[in-house]
């Protein structure tokens, strides 16, 4: 059978493959619509949104952003090492990406717990309805991302990928970066502005 070499410059092969980019596009569009709805509601109830935002911990949010960025960096390095045929280093990078990525979930869980203890639930007010829905939806994505990275780590350890065959890892990495990108547009809107 004739081998087909797919060029990375091909329009049919974005990083990670076409399918993950369809997923990324849909997810980004969904979150952008959520952000638009949040901003429109914010204009209608500006003082309520500003007061509610003060109840969020900006320091916590900033640390979580750094955590996700760091995890994204480690995943990028894992893909790079695999592309060079260094499975051992790739495995270590992806393992640390999972550990640090999980830290995001732990910190978010602590933040959620604090809100629940204060009795701030989904129906508290419009701001917190958006807060719970947008960050909760993102939380689930990160959780799924951790599971995907864990599966990839196991496969790398088993030696199932090589420098000439690591598309799955690229796809999983793209999903993880998407979690990072969503948080980057969500965090300033909810916590900072």
């Amino acid at each position: 059978m004739e081998n087909t070499v797919i060029s990375k410059k091909s329009i049919y092969y974005p990083p990670g493959g076409m399918l993950i980019w369809i997923v990324i596009s849909i997810e980004m569009l969904t979150f952008l619509m959520g952000i638009a709805a949040f901003l429109v509601s914010r204009n209608a109830e500006l003082s309520l949104f500003n007061e509610s935002q003060l109840m969020l911990n900006k320091t916590f949010g900033t640390i979580n952003t750094i955590v996700l960025i760091t995890s994204g960096y480690l995943v990028a390095e894992a893909v790079k090492k695999l592309a060079k045929g260094d499975s051992e280093k790739s495995y270590k990078y992806i393992m640390w990406a999972i550990i640090i990525g999980s830290l995001f979930l732990v910190l978010k869980a602590i933040e959620y717990n604090g809100k629940i203890n204060l009795g701030i639930a989904l129906e508290e007010n419009t701001f917190f309805t958006f807060y719970w829905l947008l960050t909760g939806f993102h939380f689930v994505h990160v959780l799924v991302g951790v599971v995907i990275l864990t599966i990839l780590m196991i496969q790398i350890k088993k030696g199932n990928y090589s420098a000439s065959d690591y598309t799955d890892v690229e796809t999983g990495a793209s999903f993880w970066h998407m979690c990072d990108l969503i948080w980057l547009i969500l965090f300033p809107i909810l916590y900072l502005i």
Partner: peptide, 9 residues
């Protein structure tokens, strides 16, 4: 950089 779009179409 991280998603390597700089090398993409």
């Amino acid at each position: 950089q991280f998603m390597e779009l700089k090398h993409a179409h």
